[in-house]
């Protein structure tokens, strides 16, 4: 008997009945919305009990003025199964408020989350608690705004100018 998404969802529902907020199915993809406090617990369970060993993607979405809480952190988690033949993928989501955009890091569960979480921090300013090295990754280190936030002003060049001038200054020492 092969493993499928229903089984994974059923098992999660059994194990964490109060942490799962809702479950959606769209275009054959299953999205599970969980509360953000349980992210580590659920990911640990997924990896160690259900064999979801592969973190396919980790990203975030800003829903400014669309819905509240404002942010969603999105995890795509994959299970290969024996000989990579099952391939079950689920999407986990956790909502973060504007006033407290923080969530526990999953680097201790999948080390591949390291750069992905850094990128989310870089682009959205979401802090991952317990991340070993949460620095900006794509933008300059002293850059201030978070570009993928919906209220980022694309026409304002001040932030780039500032970090460019600082780099010039540092270079002339």
């Amino acid at each position: 008997m092969s493993f499928d998404v229903e089984q994974a969802v059923g098992s999660l529902q059994n194990e964490f009945p109060q942490n799962i907020v809702n479950i959606k199915e769209y275009r054959n993809e299953t999205t599970i919305l969980i509360d953000k406090e349980s992210i580590n617990k659920i990911c640990n369970y997924l990896k160690h009990n259900l064999d979801f060993t592969f973190l396919a993607d980790l990203t975030a979405v800003d829903y400014l003025e669309v819905k509240s809480p404002r942010y969603e952190v999105v995890y795509h988690i994959h299970r290969f199964g024996p000989d990579c033949e099952e391939n079950v993928r689920i999407r986990l989501k956790a909502e973060l408020t504007d006033s407290e955009p923080t969530i526990d890091s999953v680097v201790s569960i999948w080390s591949g989350a390291d750069w992905l979480e850094r990128e989310v921090y870089d682009m959205f300013g979401i802090k991952f608690i317990g991340h070993p090295d949460l620095r900006r990754i794509l933008m300059p280190e002293d850059y201030e705004p978070f570009p993928l936030r919906k209220d980022f002003d694309v026409r304002n060049r001040e932030a780039s100018k500032k970090s460019f001038e600082k780099a010039l200054e540092d270079g002339t020492d």
Partner: peptide, 24 residues
């Protein structure tokens, strides 16, 4: 390799036969 999320020849070079063309 799996833990780091490698894919493609970097993953298959380590003996994991994951290929999206076969998987999905």
């Amino acid at each position: 390799a799996i833990d780091l999320g490698l894919t493609g020849p970097a993953l298959r070079g380590s003996g994991v036969p994951y290929d999206v063309r076969k998987a999905t």
